[in-house]
């Protein structure tokens, strides 16, 4: 029982991190109807910026405390992501108003390669580390309930907390504010949104800024776990099944989807692994997503697509 719980907790926390990346996809899709292929590249770009800014600010100002340099670097990287958002809106999206979803998808594919290249030529292409001073040592909990207690990874735990807080904030923003309503309106119909005076350009800058910050948080957490390197861009691919499972248009869906995938991966590896020879963790999420597509193509929480014939 203790072992099961431990696996479950590990899965939940890993799932929260997937959810964080998935959230980036959902945000942009919800608010502009674009499937943003560049989300992974944005995670990489943000993490690279943050890692190098922390390094540079530490050297330049002679600050040794990793928390202080991290904070400076976070703000710096956030500014960089705002600039990226503005540039994407000004030079790409503005010219593609009222275009097909496929056109916009292809545009984000272009942005992906551009960001990957630019990130590495600006910030370098070796492996960097982000140290935000998170405690790395695991703790034992519930020792008086189970024999030996449950091993909890503190780093994952804090990461999950940060992710949860971000999600709560975003949900409120979308559901309760007029800007959130405007964002949802833009996602549904560009022209109609314009006709009631919603400034499309400003909305797009806002949503790409928010997605940039989400990418930055994801990049920071994943970067501090795995190191900042090119492979971070592929983290986004791990989040794809999460988005399919949870639904492209739902913030809670991204979370629940992330948790299901995280838990499913860990449990299947542990309990099914020895029947079919292990290595399940790598493909389990995709198979689960595929199965889901057959049953509920709009995802768990996605908006049901109703078409009048």
């Amino acid at each position: 029982m203790a072992f099961f719980l431990e696996t479950l907790l590990g899965g939940l926390m890993a799932g929260m991190l997937y959810a964080l990346v998935a959230l980036g996809f959902v945000l942009i899709y919800k608010a502009s109807g674009v499937f943003n292929f560049a989300q992974g590249a944005m995670v990489l770009f943000a993490a690279l910026a943050m890692a190098r800014f922390a390094e540079w600010s530490g050297e330049a100002l002679g600050i040794g405390n990793p928390l202080v340099t991290s904070l400076l670097a976070f703000c710096g990287a956030a500014v960089v992501m705002f600039c990226v958002a503005w540039v994407i809106e000004r030079f790409v999206l503005r010219h593609l108003v009222n275009q097909e979803g496929t056109t916009l998808l292809m545009a984000t594919l272009g942005i992906t390669y551009f960001l990957e290249g630019l990130g590495q030529s600006l910030f370098g292409s070796s492996i960097y580390k982000i140290d935000i001073g998170m405690p790395k040592d695991p703790v034992m909990i519930l020792e008086n309930v189970f024999e030996g207690g449950i091993l909890l990874n503190k780093e994952d735990f804090y990461a999950a907390l940060i992710a949860a807080a971000l999600v709560a904030l975003l949900s409120i923003f979308f559901q309760k504010t007029s800007t959130g309503r405007a964002l949802r309106a833009v996602a549904d119909d560009h022209q109609a949104a314009q006709s009631i005076g919603i400034p499309l350009n400003r909305i797009w800058v806002i949503v790409w800024c928010v997605a940039g910050v989400v990418a930055l948080v994801a990049g920071m957490i994943w970067g501090s776990k795995l190191g900042v390197q090119f492979s971070l861009a592929t983290v986004a691919l791990r989040a794809l099944p999460v988005v399919i499972l949870g639904g492209l248009t739902s913030v809670p869906g991204a979370i629940v989807g992330g948790l299901i995938i995280g838990v499913g991966e860990k449990l299947s590896e542990v309990y099914l692994g020895h029947f079919i020879g292990g290595g399940i963790e790598i493909w389990f999420a995709y198979v689960l997503a595929l199965g889901f597509l057959l049953v509920r193509p709009q995802g768990l929480f996605g908006e049901k697509i109703i078409d009048r014939v």
């Binding site: 949802r184 309106a185 549904d188």
Partner: peptide, 9 residues
Amino acid sequence: QNLALFKGM
């Protein structure tokens, strides 16, 4: 002319 409502809302 062709409905342009926010269908999900």
